[in-house]
Design a protein around this nucleic acid. Structure first.
Lengths: 146, 146
DNA sequence: CCTTTTTAGTTGCGTATGCAACCATTAACG
DNA sequence: CGTTAATGGTTGCATACGCAACTAAAAAGG
């Protein structure tokens, strides 16, 4: 790749990560587009869809459909927010607590695969740098304009 | 995000990069799923679809459709390979040469956006680490396996 | 040679994703 | 208050992607 090596690696890591997650979580009916929402809800249950979208920086339409899936598979339930009837709070079900260790172990294993031959310090550095680049990306796409 | 921060940043960088590329290249009818193929062809023209797939590690079905798009938009043409009638060689058109500077400048700008606040050494490190993680991902998904 | 297997490419299907249009509810304002 | 604007959520549409089934051509093996 002559130019733009970064984009190529990011594309590969994203796509291959999705393949891995899909395969491993398929028996649990958790799709690659859904697991991130579970991760956020494990941290803080009962968020609004809008809060999930905002936190993960994912389109609200995409979020709506991901929550559809999770609800249909029995991992979350929507409860209309009594303080604002337009919005839903999303709560984990006991079934979600049950798969939590599975999900964490799958993600941990993928991280281990990626980190083969890298030192913990290098992994830490990678996270640091990706996080800073993400913030730049975010600010450019949203933050004042263009 | 409690665990799996890496996946989250990669997801964000991938999706936001796609948004940026889509917007910038939309006037030229080059989609976010197509520009990588052009980049490879700028390096070496006349590759087989299979070689493109293999080099970018992208599914051959996806490749076929990306080349469809590029052909329809006038950037490449398929020529049946006389040495193996099953395969096509993909050649750039003059129109592809014309957009080359535009494409490169768009990608360069995105890299500059991502690298704000990072030193050139840090960017170099990031590429290094991503490249090594990509190789790990590749080996796990393909290489013997799993 | 003829049959079997492999391989390059195409296509159908399922999923994910962003955008824009839309709906219902809430907030802002005159 | 009543009208207008903003906002949370849903849905239609377009694109991208992997997988699997399929086709046609080439390679392998008897």
């Amino acid at each position: 790749m002559p130019d733009f090596p970064l984009g190529r690696w990011i594309s590969l890591l994203y796509r291959y990560g999705q393949i891995y997650i899909s395969r491993e979580l398929e028996p649990y009916r958790i799709g690659r587009g859904q697991y991130l929402f579970l991760l956020v809800l494990y941290q803080r249950d009962g968020l609004l869809q809008e809060e999930l979208s905002c936190y993960l920086n994912i389109d609200k339409g995409t979020t709506a459909r991901a929550i559809d899936r999770l609800e249909e598979a029995g991992y979350v339930r929507r409860v209309q927010n009594s303080e604002d009837l337009r919005s839903n709070r999303v709560y984990l079900t006991p079934q979600a607590e049950e798969v939590k260790p599975v999900l964490f172990s799958v993600l941990k294993k993928w991280t281990e695969i990626l980190s083969q031959g890298l030192t913990p310090e290098e992994m830490e550095t990678a996270q640091q740098l990706l996080s800073r680049m993400s913030e730049n990306a975010f600010k450019h796409i949203h933050g004042e304009g263009k």
